[in-house]
């Protein structure tokens, strides 16, 4: 089992990154705190049963955090972000006032992210919210750098398409091609 001092060091080193990562999933700071705690608890329990490979520590922590987020969403039985359709309807309603701001754009982005698979979602959160390099993302998620880039490219395309499909881009912001 991992010793106490090591656990304390790991918390100091990874808690901030993990917290932002989890927050990217749940969008609630209180829930993110609880899930970060659960992440470490599950990690400690895991270490009591199996030997921890130092090289894969970071990847293990992110995997546990991601699984905890998935479990949480499954158990809570609700969509944590604004659903894509709802978000866009809201966006259309506000379109008339020509005051579509950054908040609404982010709402659509979040809705698209929410609909993505967990790995893609992780890549997006790590790249956009945590400013990680693709190499770090790949190491953290246990995927190749190339795969991380492809996942990011795919989700950016979906975001652009979502904005375009709602006819917002021509009038407001981005893409209509």
């Amino acid at each position: 089992m991992i010793d106490r001092e090591k656990t304390s060091q790991l918390y100091d080193r990874y808690s901030r990154q993990l917290y932002i990562y989890i927050y990217g999933f749940v969008r609630s700071s209180e829930t993110a705190e609880d899930l970060l705690h659960d992440t470490f608890v599950r990690f400690i329990e895991y270490s009591a049963k199996r030997a921890i490979d130092e090289a894969n520590l970071k990847s293990l922590l992110y995997t546990i955090a991601r699984n905890i987020c998935i479990d949480y969403q499954r158990k809570s039985g609700k969509i944590l972000f604004v659903a894509l359709d709802d978000g866009l309807q809201e966006l259309m309603a506000e379109d008339a006032s020509d005051e579509i701001g950054l908040r609404e754009t982010n709402r659509i982005v979040n809705a698209v992210v929410q609909k993505s698979d967990h790995v893609t979602r992780s890549v997006f959160i790590m790249k956009s919210d945590m400013q990680m390099t693709y190499r770090d993302i790949g190491e953290s998620l246990g995927i190749s750098e190339r795969t991380a880039k492809r996942k990011m490219s795919a989700i950016l395309t979906r975001i652009a398409d979502a904005l375009r499909e709602n006819g917002l881009l021509a009038a407001l912001l981005f893409f209509w091609h």
């Binding site: 880039k149 490219s153 950016l156 395309t157």
Partner: peptide, 10 residues
């Protein structure tokens, strides 16, 4: 959009 996304993602 796909081409632009690829450019952005590298």
């Amino acid at each position: 959009n796909k081409q632009l996304a690829r450019l952005l993602s590298g």
